[in-house]
Computed example of a mutant assay.
Amino acid sequence: MTEPSQTPVRLLIADDHPIVRDGIRGMFTGDPGFEVVGEAADGARAVELARALDPDVILMDLRMPGTDGVAAIKELARTGSRARVLVLTTYDTDRDVLPAIEAGATGYLLKDTGRDELVRAVRTAARGEAVLSPSVATRLLGQVRTPAAPLSARELEILSLIAEGATNREVAARLFISEATVKSHVLHIYAKLDVNDRAAAVAAAFRRGLLTLDGG
């Protein structure tokens, strides 16, 4: 039982479904340990309310119209928000989990989480401690144990030139190979880094330490 003298955790709910927001609010209503200070239907509004209301924890859905959850988490980090972001979503794929954690989310839970577990998770997040649902923790552990296939020396060479702004044709000329060969290598790079475009490939390579600012 929360002590009456304890300062309640200020909570902001960000989800594009009103019924979901109502359900989450209901879980915390009546508990003196929490105060729901606001609700947002998209990421941009969540960022605005975080600035205006200064919540301790933001329960953030990922897939929302307009500004999604990951973009909102990045913006909150960029603006120096002190709020801890606890992702609450139905999605636990690598494409959802990893970007959210890398963007700065303190925790990641699925919407089938029970009320007691969610309450504990919010308290944990408010303390700045990480909290992950079991399936998400397993995915992250799997990423550590089984990292993405390493890039070959040629793929790293090509990606380094792409990072410098070279087109496929320019890469082909620099390396004395055909443009078709370059395209094939680029597709392999995308697959290994789990990305869909050149900018994302370069960003992922820097993030994983495959490329460095000194050209490594």
Rank of each mutant, 00 (worst) to 15 (best):
A83T: 08
R82Y: 01
D92N: 14
D92R: 07
G104R: 12
L88G: 01
D94G: 05
G107K: 12
T89D: 02
Y91E: 10
A105R: 01
T106L: 12
A103D: 02
T89H: 03
V97G: 09
E102M: 13
T93I: 00
T90C: 10
L98F: 12
A103N: 03
T89Q: 04
K111Y: 08
V97C: 08
T89W: 04
G80T: 12
V97E: 03
D96P: 01
L86D: 02
L118R: 11
R82G: 05
T89C: 00
G114V: 06
A103K: 07
T93L: 05
V119F: 09
D94S: 14
S81T: 07
D94I: 13
R115C: 07
R84Y: 02
L88Y: 14
P99H: 05
L88V: 15
R115F: 00
D92T: 05
P99Y: 06
V85Y: 01
D96R: 03
Y108C: 01
D94R: 15
L86R: 03
A105H: 04
V85G: 00
K111D: 02
P99G: 04
V87F: 11
A103T: 08
L98T: 12
T113W: 13
G114P: 00
G114M: 10
L109W: 10
R84Q: 14
A103F: 11
A100F: 09
G104A: 07
V97R: 10
